[in-house]
């Protein structure tokens, strides 16, 4: 239990998927204009990550990993090179399925998250989390915690960025720096503060 908590805290703060590994920056910049949309996208990312990370774990360890097909009579088979194309297909399919389920059962949630769901299919944070999960040899339970933790960390970062952008809307930024360059420098400062958490040991 303690290990899982530590994994969660680690993936939210110290190994923040956005600020330490730079995943999902495209949508981080595009959607951080208002706090409401940032929260909506953040929730959608948490949701999709918590679902896709364990599903990809099952597919990888059940079908693709070296020796995983022993039950079917192919103990030598190593399909792990197919993980990129499988994961992206799973993610695209899961996003589509999640969108249809939400649309059917919760129109309210759909109205809030609907526009963001298609964006998520190509968000590098989702594919990146699945690939990290394979590379770091997480167990099934760890993959759920890691997915949820990464999503929470991503949401924390985008909501904080939206709040900061709201505060500096009327600030007098030098002409060439305004926009993208300015956001990058603010993100750098945020990354520095998040690094302070690495002093915490659990």
């Amino acid at each position: 239990m303690g290990d899982l908590l530590s994994l969660f805290i680690n993936s939210v703060f110290i190994g923040n998927i956005l600020l330490a590994y730079f995943l999902g920056i495209c949508s981080f910049i595009a959607v951080s204009k208002t706090i409401e949309t940032a929260t909506g996208l953040g929730l959608a990312v948490i949701f999709v990550l918590t679902v896709t990370s364990p599903v990809n774990w099952l597919i990888y360890h059940g079908l693709l990993a070296p020796g995983a097909l022993a039950w079917a009579g192919f103990p030598e088979m190593d399909l792990s090179f197919l993980k990129f194309i499988t994961f992206i297909a799973v993610i695209a399919a899961m996003v589509q399925a999640v969108e249809m389920v939400i649309d059917r059962y919760s129109p309210l949630l759909y109205a809030a998250l609907g526009v963001f769901l298609p964006l998520i299919a190509v968000n590098c944070a989702i594919l990146g989390t699945s690939l990290f999960m394979v590379e770091r040899n997480h167990t099934f339970v760890e993959s759920v915690v890691f997915g949820a933790g990464s999503g929470t960390g991503w949401m924390l970062a985008i909501v904080s960025m939206a709040a900061i952008r709201k505060k500096v809307r009327y600030a007098d930024v030098p002409a060439g720096l305004d926009g993208f360059g300015f956001i990058m420098i603010v993100a750098g400062l945020m990354a520095m503060t998040f690094m302070m958490f690495s002093g915490i040991t659990l």
């Binding site: 002409a175 926009g179 360059g181 300015f182 990058m184 750098g188 690094m195």
Partner: peptide, 29 residues
């Protein structure tokens, strides 16, 4: 070497590019 360095460098590079002649094509936020 750490993550923040990358953010700072790219922010400053974009500033430089936008300040060079012919590179001003950025939109107002």
């Amino acid at each position: 070497v750490l993550a923040p360095g990358a953010f700072f460098i790219i922010g400053l590079l974009v500033w430089l590019k936008n300040s060079l002649p012919g590179g001003i094509s950025h939109e107002k936020k």
